[in-house]
Nucleic acid binder design. Structure first.
Lengths: 196, 196
DNA sequence: AATAAGCTGACCAGTCGAGTCAAGTTAGCG
DNA sequence: CGCTAACTTGACTCGACTGGTCAGCTTATT
């Protein structure tokens, strides 16, 4: 195993170079335009033809698998870890919702991930599953601590983030200022006096 | 004008019958599946061929113009009128948001209307314009009365309803109970203690 | 220079629904 | 009744997309 004769190193030099360029281009394209960007465009950015992507990665799913870590997994798991480390439950909730909404705004790929656009990608499903689990965990903790209203169901947190993903995916993105202000409303509510 | 020799009555008997059936089918289909329902389906429900819809109404836009009143305009304007008649500004806001979210849930056609799916339809644009104007009016009144936080911008109310339309359009519709509960959260906020 | 790995342009495939038209059918009038 | 203009329609084109494939050419490697 010292020589590292993995599938990767069996490739001819030019093939490996192309694979690298494709990966890099995919990361850029996924970041900028989401996981649904036409493969043609990724190929163009990588300076190869679409067919080469199929040769190297077998298609979109394979390509996603190859780069999803850098594109969304790292950032998403960092948010979850960071949230877990926050003692105060209220603060934890605020941080989590704020951070997730922030990354949703900045990275279309995160939106596609959360919408489960490609259920055939194991990595993607794994990430969704992990996110969903944390949603449950967090809302349970919040309810127990009295930070959330009693009626708040576990699904509600997920629905909140999911609906925002849909709005970002299919709507026109608001200015950053508007978006952040609305994040505040989601957290604090729009009524100045939260009667009853 | 007594004879009523409108474009309608110049039609041959069978053509008028078909036009009626198409109108009725369109109302049903628009109600159930939104304004984007394939014309083929409307035709089938009306017992005619798609081409007949083009003969009678010139296409989707013409068909929408012909039935939009019954499908969404009446209900939407009724909500606005009803809201205007409510003295208490706070109640007015609650009623309006609740009623709009309710009709969005029940009628996909309202969602399509609010999303301006067909900007070439004058009637549709008119309805949107009226809705937008009332949104402005209402949120201004609420802010003045202190019912809404000072930072709440006129656009925010519109965005709130618009995003919900997107979620209903592209997502899976939640159970009625979940949906109504969340309507409550939108109004009251998710934090039990609305600290700053 | 032999050879197999690799690359690519051009192509097919499948989806979806709008819109059109030649040809057949029928209402309505004389 | 029978003629004609109005009407209907099945079958078609069109177009926009994107995923996926392959024969044939190019090039790394020994």
């Amino acid at each position: 195993m010292t020589g590292g004769t993995s599938a990767e190193s069996r490739l001819r030099a030019d093939a490996r170079r192309n694979a690298d360029q494709i990966r890099r281009a995919a990361i850029g394209a996924f970041h900028g335009r989401g996981l649904t960007v036409p493969l043609e465009e990724v190929a163009k950015a990588a300076g190869v033809s679409k067919a080469t992507i199929f040769n190297r990665f077998g298609g979109r799913i394979g390509l996603i698998e190859a780069v999803i870590e850098e594109v969304v997994a790292v950032e998403l798991f960092a948010i979850i870890d960071r949230a877990r480390s926050i003692e105060d439950v209220g603060e934890r909730l605020v941080y989590y919702i704020t951070a997730v909404r922030d990354v949703q705004y900045r990275q279309p790929a995160v939106v596609d991930t959360m919408l489960e656009t490609y259920p055939d990608s194991p990595s993607l499903v794994r990430i969704c599953h992990a996110g969903g689990a944390f949603n449950e965990e967090l809302s349970a903790a919040c309810r127990t601590a009295g930070v959330l209203r009693a009626e708040f169901k576990g699904d509600d947190l997920h629905a909140l983030l999911h609906d925002n993903a849909l709005a970002l995916k299919h709507g026109s993105r608001p200015s950053r200022a508007d978006y952040d202000r609305r994040t505040g409303f989601v957290l604090d509510g729009i009524r100045s006096s939260p009667a009853s």
